[in-house]
Structure formats: structure tokens, C-alpha cells
């Protein structure tokens, strides 16, 4: 594994205004992630998992502390620079696949590359390669409504991976899948992690996901309870 640190959180605190008072979603978080990690934020609802993903994904910024992602200080980025960081370096996988219904599988996956102003030929090559990774190249022309849950999530992975991001953030990616599909998806992600050296960071309380993680950060009430390196790994 490459030892390059691509995510660094220093004393990160996030508070939200709630009525007249504040709600602390994250409190004094210090974490670092290296390139190629397969890590998860685990904990009950309200523990701060999604808030942390938001900050790492440059969708939100910390109230205090510093979040450095791909060498950029998230708090100092303009909206446009945040968008650029997401476009070129960060992929997202959501609990619901969130594919755009009027576009085909190919077009959904292609979209990130359109934003990067890639040529049509480059886009076609990258999209087909990405669909091939997740095993649905033959569904390129299908509409999302024709896909099963597992296929939809594979398209979401292909969409996230097509731009070869450095970081992939996944929020409960297996929550809507049956066990068989969940394992298949996780195995695909694990393989991509190995092959492309992409850092995967999950927010989950699904034990199936936890079984694949190399590192688990346990969050509770916005604080790190335990940062655990998992010695054993499931075979992929």
C-alpha cells in the first residue's frame, strides 16, 4: 500500500445551529487516510458518520479544525473549487443508487467525464472499461428503470470509478441490497481498491461491509471511540 496521506483531519469539529443552541455532530476528530485504504466509519445513527463523509467529500466544511483532502484545505475552498475537487478526485456511492432516470446506463456513467471535458472517444473507452470492471458492459444501453437493485448499484460504482478518483466515499452502499448482491458489490469494490489503488471510505453499520474493511473507525456521539486496524481479511 502506498503510504501517501491523502486525507488528513486535524481537530475537526462540526456544530450545527439548532434553535437557540448548537448541536455538535463531530468533536475534535483527528484522522489520516493513506492512498489505497479500504476503511469504514461505523457507529449508530447520529454518531457523525455522514457529517464526516460530507467534510471529506468537500460537501461541507468543519466549524473548527482543519480538513486537508488531496492537499486542499476544505475550509478554504470556494464552491467552484470544491466542485472541482469532487469532480476530479472524489467519487460518491449513495445508499439509493441515484441514477438519472432519463439517461441510459452508459450516459449516467459518462456524465462525470463530460464535466471533465473529455473527448467522446476517451469517454466511450473509459465508460466501457468501467462498466466492464463491474460486470455490466452488456447493459450499457439500458435505462435505470430496467435494472435490478444490484445492477443499479454496480452502475453507481461504475459512475463513481469512471473518472479514476483518488477517494471513493460510500454511504451505506449495501443498505438496499440482499446479502448475495451486497457481497458481490463489496467484492467488486475490494477488487477495484486493489487494482486501482483507490481509497475507499464507507459509512456503514452493516456487518457484511465491516467484514471487508481493513480499518474501522468507530464513532460515537461525534467522537472517535476506536480506530481499529483489522488484521484478518476475507478472501476476495
Amino acid at each position: 500500500m502506498n503510504s501517501e496521506i491523502i486525507i488528513s483531519l486535524e481537530h475537526v469539529t462540526k456544530r450545527y445551529k439548532v434553535g437557540d443552541g448548537d448541536f455538535t455532530a463531530l468533536s475534535d476528530i483527528n484522522l489520516q487516510f493513506k492512498k489505497g485504504e479500504f476503511a469504514g466509519l461505523v457507529g449508530p445513527s447520529g454518531s457523525g458518520k455522514t457529517t464526516l463523509l460530507n467534510i471529506i467529500g468537500s460537501l461541507d466544511s468543519p466549524t473548527e479544525g482543519k480538513a486537508i483532502v488531496m492537499g486542499k484545505n476544505i475550509s478554504a475552498l470556494s464552491h467552484k473549487e470544491s466542485a472541482m475537487l469532487r469532480n476530479y478526485h472524489i467519487g460518491f456511492i449513495f445508499q439509493v443508487y441515484n441514477l438519472m432516470p432519463v439517461y441510459t446506463v452508459f450516459e449516467n456513467v459518462e456524465f462525470s467525464l463530460i464535466l471533465q471535458n473529455k473527448s467522446a472517444a476517451e469517454r466511450k473507452k473509459a465508460v466501457m472499461e468501467s462498466l466492464d470492471w463491474v460486470g455490466i458492459a452488456d447493459m450499457a444501453n439500458k435505462k435505470p428503470s430496467k435494472l435490478s437493485g444490484g445492477e443499479g448499484q454496480r452502475v453507481a460504482i461504475a459512475r463513481a470509478m469512471v473518472k479514476r478518483p483518488d477517494i471513493l466515499l460510500a454511504d451505506e452502499p449495501t443498505a438496499n441490497l440482499d446479502a448475495k448482491n451486497a457481497h458481490a458489490i463489496l467484492q467488486t469494490m475490494k477488487a477495484l481498491n486493489k487494482e486501482l489503488n483507490t481509497t475507499f471510505l464507507f459509512s456503514t453499520h452493516d456487518e457484511k461491509v465491516m467484514g471487508y474493511l481493513d480499518r474501522m473507525i468507530h464513532l460515537e456521539d461525534g467522537k472517535i471511540r476506536e480506530d481499529e486496524i483489522i488484521p484478518h481479511k476475507l478472501s476476495v
Binding site: 464552491h79 472541482m84 469532480n87 449513495f94 464535466l115
Partner: peptide
């Protein structure tokens, strides 16, 4: 709303 949300998450800026 959902489509715009996805596009924002994928890195399209609001102006675009």
C-alpha cells in the same frame, strides 16, 4: 431535485 443533487455531488458546480 434529485438529478441536480447528483450532479452537485458528482462535481458540477452550481453556476454550471
Amino acid at each position: 431535485y434529485q438529478e441536480f443533487g447528483i450532479r452537485l455531488a458528482l462535481g458540477e458546480d452550481k453556476g454550471r
